[in-house]
Nucleic acid binder design. Structure first.
Lengths: 331, 331
DNA sequence: GTCCCCACTCGAATCGTTTCGACCACCCCG
DNA sequence: CGGGGTGGTCGAAACGATTCGAGTGGGGAC
């Protein structure tokens, strides 16, 4: 018979009881070296591995977390996901994917996972999407960590990057290149990251006594960058600070089509440093977020929350300026 | 008491036995309308939802599958993942993410998930990576479906796209534009998709009695495209057929830097149609794969395999030519 | 020598569900 | 009127682990 071995089979082979095997395997009680060795041998010989569901049922822990990605089109979140995965691997956790662009569906799915106790908690990367209502309903009952984007009215720990500082650095870079007529291609108005970045840009311009020659709001996606081009060109800006790379890409596309040279006629600085940023011509100067680290830190925060510790409420990781070709001196 | 309600609570509230509640909820036995209503009310009132692990333990089914992505950097697989997710949502399955670029780790992790019965099966997207040894060890015991890439010596059902036909179409496009000196930027030598695409290119050239002026092999990633540029320029080709978009991107970058115009001096056709392809200047003409459909079909195949049906062994979905700017007539 | 404590092990109970066989009442058919 | 099938319900036994209280034996302290 080739039945999958259970803990009883191991117990029989090692001539001890099932509870002792459990104690050995989990280290929950002191055991003698002889027993440890016999159990170890039996496990190795039978190729035993504990059944996840039996264990989870008894322990009342799923050893799994849900990773929520409402906007899978943004490669930024993929990197965050890899960070989460890497930390999860180290800590024996499993990641359940919750990724779809259909937000209502996603909402219901997450609620289902939680109510069925399929996951112990959630890591929520929003990217400017609204916070799901049904999840909100459950209140702060759910162990959850917000990654990347913050909702002011939601009481969960948060891990993200220093958007404001990054934006300041981007603005500083443009100023240092001699730009004075600077336009801002901002993100969606009510989104925290967008607000932070906008504030950072304005901060830094203000220190020079400057104000932007134009502020255009987009939605963090490529087409909105294209649409913003006309207004920005019209503003007479020599430089644009774009609140993310996708919009910067759209903007550059439209400008090139309009016959402008980048960076000759118009300099551009993005935000995020997605892979595509370095594939463009011109390669995009941008602000790199530590995506993987954000993912890892978010997972760590969730773990400590699950362990009952009160984690840091807000963790801001530093950004890094990536200088490529899309920024020049004003003509 | 604020304890999570169990099936017994529902049973008590509806004044029936737990087994009857189970029968109602799962439809596994005939029940009377009156009982159905009482149970329905009780469930609604208590907000009951079955605990996943207890159910899974008893049913000996995880209702979960692992999605293996050895190369998360390739956006192609993200799209496939979304297709898998969408089908999974419909069928009440849960997706466990297995994504890391550390292949040995990934291998061990998958084996762990399977042995612990945390997942019922695997969908494996390889993208030219080697097939994990430990998984292979388990033989065809594991319900598994290969998506996108095929391993000749591995006996699993496969879902992918018609790489050969797509490549033929790409070659035909170049020929129809009048190109005669055509180079091929092929994928890794032992990878099935690369072989198929190469064969398709050669097929179509051969029908005109032509042979490529150069065949350079890359590894499906951007830098290898850059490195291939010199040899291709030297070959005097007027057009390049690139076996995927990432390599095409690298190639174009290097050509532009070398002062060539694209498509003026060199036309390029890619493969995959990743989002970046339409963000480039020039926008890349390429062959679109039905990524989401591949994901959905792979999930469907895995489900039928789990249900005991023998699924189609190889499913090839049609590709589609996407014509943009990177292809012109030879000068 | 006695007592206590600790290291070690075990059996039994438990987690929350599904499933299986048994049971009952009823209806229909012969 | 008897018997067989069936719709409807139930209790008890799994599923495979962990956990808890209890039992045993040996060693150290007094």
């Amino acid at each position: 018979m080739t039945r999958r071995p259970t803990i009883k089979d191991v117990a029989a082979a090692a001539q001890v009881s099932a509870s002792t095997v459990s104690a050995v395997l989990n280290g929950t009680a002191p055991t003698s070296p002889g027993v440890r060795e016999r159990v170890g041998n039996a496990v190795a010989q039978l190729g035993y591995q504990a059944e996840a569901h039996a264990r989870n049922l008894r322990r009342r822990r799923a050893h799994a977390i849900g990773l929520v990605i409402p906007d899978p089109a943004n490669p930024f979140f993929i990197e965050v996901a890899l960070g989460v995965q890497s930390k999860a691997l180290e800590s024996g956790m499993v990641i359940v994917l919750c990724a779809t662009d259909e937000v209502a569906e996603l909402d219901a799915y997450c609620a289902h996972l939680l109510k069925a106790r399929y996951v112990d908690g959630l890591i929520f990367t929003s990217g400017g999407h609204r916070f799901p209502g049904e999840l909100n309903l459950l209140g702060s009952q759910v162990p959850m960590v917000l990654a990347d984007d913050l909702f002011a009215d939601v009481p969960y720990p948060f891990v993200g990057s220093d958007n404001r500082g990054g934006a300041q650095a981007a603005a500083r870079l443009a100023l240092d290149h001699g730009h004075r007529r600077i336009a801002i291609l901002a993100g969606p108005a009510e989104v925290w990251t967008a607000e932070q970045r906008l504030a950072g840009y304005l901060d830094e311009l203000d220190r020079e006594g400057l104000a932007p020659v134009a502020v255009v709001h987009g939605d963090y996606r490529v087409p909105s960058g294209r649409q913003a081009a006309a207004a920005i060109i019209e503003s007479g800006a020599t430089s644009v600070l774009a609140a993310n790379d996708l919009m910067a890409i759209g903007l550059i596309q439209s400008c090139l089509q309009a016959g402008l040279r980048v960076p000759g006629d118009l300099s551009v600085v993005g935000f995020d440093d997605i892979p595509t940023a370095s594939y463009l011509a011109p390669q995009l100067s941008t602000v790199r977020q530590p995506c993987r680290e954000i993912g890892r830190a978010a997972m760590a925060a969730l773990l400590s929350q699950l362990a009952g510790d009160a984690p840091d409420n807000r963790l801001l990781l530093p950004t890094e300026l990536v200088i490529r070709d899309s920024l020049g001196t004003p003509s």
